[in-house]
Amino acid sequence: MTSGVDLGRPQTQAVGSDEDVVRVRQLVRTVAVAAKLSLVDQTKVVTAASELARNTLVYGGGGSVEVSTVDNGRKQGIKILFADSGPGIADLNLALTDGYTTGGGLGLGLSGARRLVDEFDIQTAPGQGTRITITKWSR
């Protein structure tokens, strides 16, 4: 494997600083290339990962990101889990609304990231932290 990433197992990146968000982007890019995503799909999933990793840092108080390749028999894809033990999200519908923010941002992170990927799953509750899983398939 020329990418230097062992795709047989998930890659984990801790998220505790700005620089870690950059590392998440780079890791996701490497795995997305290996999963044979098109350039546009690579760009979409890296952008979504950047938004969600920033949320993990800013709202979740830090956490971790796990990146792996997936294969459903017909096509390959990339699956990314963002996990934090932060305060969680009380009103998920509101949080997923375009333009809603509690942090002074544009309010596009969560809603925008969801539009950029094929599958988006979020598990959260007040005081329970947040776990978001996204998947992007090759076409």
Partner: peptide, 14 residues
């Protein structure tokens, strides 16, 4: 701006 970046920006909603 790269084409893929432009496509992604629009879908993101920026």
């Amino acid at each position: 701006m790269r084409p893929a970046v432009a496509i992604t920006l629009v879908e993101l909603g920026l």
